[in-house]
Design a protein around this nucleic acid. Structure first.
Length: 670
RNA sequence: GCUGCUGUAGCUCAGUGGUAGAGCGCACCCUUGGUAAGGGUGAGGCCGGGAGUUCAAUCCUCCCCAGCAGCACCA
């Protein structure tokens, strides 16, 4: 008599199943609806094929399309396989290598046969068609355990040199699996997969582009073609994604930055921003806003040197770890030969080196260390609009989002062990207020200890728990605030809280952070005198809310699609005339608006009102005040608000009150 | 930093082995017109930088630089 397997379900119930049965059998036993909906299973927490037999008693959770994260991962992985099969079906002799799921789809690295060119965009439509054919054929995806030798022989026989090479490196005794697609194609794969290709929606994917890639990412190896696709559960999701891509392209801050004349970049200073008057206006508004917030939060602002002796950076540990990303300059007077132009200064061998700061922390510790600090003085919160430089890899630079020179809304809080939780809690509240003022929703995540780290496990336990406690006390350790703990994502010296913003089209951006640091105070020997008269180490909290002005402005431009709220808009209103008879009145209106603190410009040009409306609308000016003969006679303005079809005629004084109200920063409203 | 692609007027982009074009923008003229493009005329280019091939290079080749898309990286 065979033993029955005990399968426990998420609701706590236990089902007895015969040996050799599968999650699909359990689903069928529960009901036909679930049998149809179940696409995979979590067995003892591990995502598995729905048709893979249980190996013993197990905890089972059936996965359906509602478990979107798992379902997407499975579907994308399957799409990758179907892609590889399609390419080989269309182009026999193509070698296949790897094909994982990505954030929005999948890719597969392949090598085209010698007889033809590498694959290009032009090949994609045919490959897509072939993929649809394979999906419609509803080929079962069947798992089989093979020996390593079996795999090697199979790949060598088929001339799959990459697969064969890979198989040879697989561990001997581990369970190696292949997945059949029908009976005529298979790929080596850990799985899991859906039950058949027909579980995929043939209308839910699109091949996007091709890119070059090297076998195993190493340029010494053979060159492959990587075919990228985006893959989803259904056509609706795919379309939403494509619309989101289009929308994102329209909002691209690099494009809007040029169109709105906010800033530019040029190759002589690549990675550093030239802010134009309008762009810098936004910056100044943000800076003023942040100063009010930090002043209100008990921070005191300082300014520290751009250049410090390299020895200082050695002591802080940054030079050892990040020197390759720092800019260093010799501390010497350059000797330029008399010919002048074109002469290069030479650097003496014994020159002292200075480094441009890549961060503000060490300098803030040096400020803290001046004089003698009592526990009564703590916490000390030092803020700085700190301009930093990091020599980022060139390929990483991206508009305002990733730059070599940036300014942080940085601050460091020096406090006692006992003050950490309260300081972090207060920061949570401060950050919440800021993000809400810009209309962002956000999630707070705790990045836990990484594998490579400094300090004992006991220290990490404590540090992680402090952050949890602080978030809990702020009332934010829950779903509403997207609370989540991320394994292994912390910095090497401390766990950190991260704020992830969600913008108007659903993309997320990590901006704010706070982290407790007990390493740097130690390295730089920061102390305070405690109640007991002895020296103690303060804890140093590193924190930022915007992250960097550059990046935050980039995010704001995309979030608002360039239609900045009035308080941030570089030009808040334009007074546009219909006829030149209204010029004097327009001048009067502009004078009054300026006196009321409104950033206003006039447009008296000899152009039709249609033209002016169009131009200022495209320039995303929040309010257009149109004046013609009628308004000039009546002392009114016709206000056209960006995004609204209707105009409102009101007295100039009423308009001023309205514009002032709208131009008031959110933290100064009542 | 790696791979692929790109670099022509302020912007968006055509184009050709015999040194160049459009639309928008800009300037000037006409037009004073009531809510998303009125008409005309004109100016504006070391065709990213360097080297090579050629009688001749913006175009072909090589090197460099920058940008874009991915990847890797992001204290």
């Amino acid at each position: 008599m065979t033993e029955l397997l005990k399968i426990s379900l998420p609701d706590g119930s236990v089902r007895e199943m015969e040996e050799g049965s599968t999650p699909a059998d359990v689903a069928a036993a529960i009901g036909p609806g679930l049998a149809k909906a179940a696409i995979a299973a979590r067995v003892d927490g591990e995502l598995r094929d729905i048709n893979r037999p249980f190996e013993g008693d197990a905890e089972l959770a059936l996965v359906t399309a509602r478990d979107e994260e798992d379902a997407l991962e499975l579907a994308r992985h399957d799409f990758a396989h179907v892609l590889a099969e399609a390419v080989q079906s269309l182009f026999p002799g193509t070698q296949i290598t790897f094909g994982p799921a990505t954030d929005d789809g999948f890719y597969y690295d392949v090598k085209a046969p010698e007889t033809r060119e590498p694959f290009s965009m032009d090949d994609l439509p045919a490959i897509e068609e072939e993929m649809r054919r394979i999906i419609k054929a509803d080929k079962p995806l069947k798992r089989e355990v093979w020996s390593r030798q079996q795999l090697i022989e199979k790949w060598e026989a088929e001339g799959e040199v990459f697969k064969a090479e890979w198989a040879k490196e697989l561990p001997e005794h581990e369970e190696l699996t292949v997945y059949w697609s029908g009976e005529d194609w298979l790929d080596m794969c850990r799985g899991p997969h859906l039950a058949s290709t027909g579980k995929l929606d043939p209308q839910a994917f699109k091949l996007m582009r091709v890119a070059g890639a090297y076998w195993r990412g190493d340029q010494k190896n053979a060159q492959l073609t990587r075919i990228y696709g985006t893959g989803w559960l259904n056509k609706k999701q795919l379309n939403q994604h494509l619309v989101r891509l289009e929308e994102a392209a329209k909002r691209d801050h690099r494009k809007l930055g040029r169109e709105m004349d906010l800033f530019h970049l040029q190759e002589e200073a690549h990675g550093s921003v030239f802010w134009h008057p309008k762009g810098y206006r936004i910056w100044r508004e943000l800076e003023a806003y942040m100063r009010r917030k930090m002043d209100g939060g008990g921070y005191r602002e300082i300014k520290t040197p751009q250049l410090m002796d390299v020895r200082q950076w050695e002591q802080s540990g940054h030079w050892g770890k990040y020197a390759e990303n720092m800019f260093a300059v010799p501390d010497m007077v350059p000797e330029v030969d008399d010919s002048g132009a074109g002469a290069h200064p030479s650097v003496a061998k014994d020159a002292d080196w200075m480094a441009i700061k890549p961060m503000n922390c060490p300098a803030h510790v040096l400020v803290f260390k001046q004089g003698i600090t009592s526990y009564r003085d703590l916490p000390i919160r030092l803020g700085e609009m700190g301009c930093c430089h990091r020599n980022e890899p060139h390929g990483a630079l991206h508009g305002l989002m990733r730059v070599r020179q940036f300014t942080q809304d940085d601050a460091h809080i020096f406090c006692t062990e006992g003050q950490v939780v309260e300081e972090v809690r207060a920061f949570c509240k401060l950050a919440e207020g800021v993000y809400r003022d810009f209309g962002f929703t956000f999630a707070i995540k705790l990045a836990l200890r990484p594998e490579k780290r400094l300090g004992s496990d006991a220290d990490w336990d404590k540090a992680e728990q402090e952050l949890r406690d602080a978030v809990a006390e702020a009332g934010m350790m829950n779903e509403e605030f997207g609370w989540e703990e991320l394994e292994g994502e912390g910095a090497f010296y401390a766990p950190k809280l991260e704020w992830h913003l969600t913008d108007a089209i659903g993309r997320t951006w990590q901006v704010g952070t706070i982290q407790g640091d007990r390493v740097l105070p130690d390295r730089l020997d920061a102390t305070y005198v405690g109640e007991d008269g002895e020296k103690h180490r303060p804890v140093m909290l590193h924190r930022a809310i915007f992250g960097s002005y550059e990046r935050f402005i980039g995010i704001l431009i995309e979030h608002y699609a360039g239609r900045l709220p009035s308080w941030l808009a570089p030009v808040q209103a334009v007074v546009a005339t219909i006829v030149s008879d209204a010029d004097d009145y327009a001048g009067e209106a502009v004078g009054k608006l300026k006196a009321a603190g409104i950033r206003v410009e006039s447009d008296l040009r000899n152009e039709k009102i249609n033209y002016k409306v169009r131009e200022h609308s495209l320039a995303k000016v929040p309010h257009l005040l149109v004046v013609g003969k009628r308004e000039a006679e009546e002392g009114t303005v016709a206000v056209r608000t960006l995004g609204e079809k209707e105009q409102k005629v009101m007295s100039l004084d009423e308009a001023i009150v309205m514009l002032r109200e709208e131009a008031t920063p959110p933290d100064l409203r009542n």
